[in-house]
Design a protein around this nucleic acid. Structure first.
Lengths: 134, 134
DNA sequence: TAACTGTTATATTTGTAGTATAACAGCTAT
DNA sequence: ATAGCTGTTATACTACAAATATAACAGTTA
């Protein structure tokens, strides 16, 4: 799991962390049951405070994406990832709406927008083939 | 122009303002050349400080969506709205990526995601018919 | 002149982000 | 058993963004 942080970004470090872990799970490079680095080791690896990592982990746990065992450590959710709940769909719409509105304003048509979404989906999705097959 | 603010939201008021104005322009309810309320009147209407409105206006001007004339007031960009610049497309991808990743993680397939985007696009787009025809 | 525009300046309050230490409780391997 | 590792909690601090509150300035318009 390679983490790339942008310290100059206006998006908080713990959010960048969450995004990259979510992307790792979605893309299949992090599989259910797989262990994640401890708060201290990850914090030291990427050069941030342990509380920053802990905040990301705690929020990911609240969303049901990982499990935290007090002494064992952190693992990607092994008991089935949460599905398409109404709460998630509502949040998804609130996030998509302003992006889509601005795209319309700048003259992007529907099929070009759908093409962009498809491109990103396939970039992230594991079926695009990131596995190493020796 | 009806503005709906959520004071409990974690998204800043000036961002909510920007989003709604962008949506208004994208949806055609705010047409190029049309005047927007002054910083003071809008601030007083929605019950916030004039600087909060001013910040939203200033950022919208920086993006090229509105014009601000020192004494005349604020107008929706009449000289052609900015198009699909590389900077915008980069920003668009950075915004879409985490949303799409989380959708994949929760098991949403591509066609369902595209359907959601299409639905929102048509909700916002003026061709969905918000005009009053007496 | 009065009333309106955006603009600028200053100050204050509040909350979040991030860091820095430190300690606690429980597990595990030496 | 001791040492070392887990997550967890607490406290304190700095830095910054968001939002408010006033106040004043410069230019336009009725």
């Amino acid at each position: 799991m390679i983490i790339q942080l942008d310290m100059q970004s206006d998006v908080p470090i713990y959010t960048q962390l969450m995004n990259q872990i979510v992307e790792g799970i979605a893309g299949g490079s992090l599989k259910p049951g797989e262990a994640l680095p401890s708060v201290r080791s990850l914090a030291s690896d990427i050069g941030v405070n342990l509380h920053t990592v802990n905040k990301a982990y705690t929020l990911l746990k609240q969303e049901g994406y990982i499990q935290i065992h007090r002494q064992k450590g952190v693992v990607v959710q092994p008991d089935g990832l949460p599905g398409l709940t109404p709460e998630f769909l509502a949040k998804q719409q609130e996030q998509l709406r302003p992006v889509i509105a601005e795209s319309i304003l700048r003259g992007m048509n529907l099929s070009d927008l759908l093409e962009q979404v498809k491109k990103l989906y396939e970039q992230i999705s594991p079926s695009s083939g990131k596995e190493s097959m020796p």
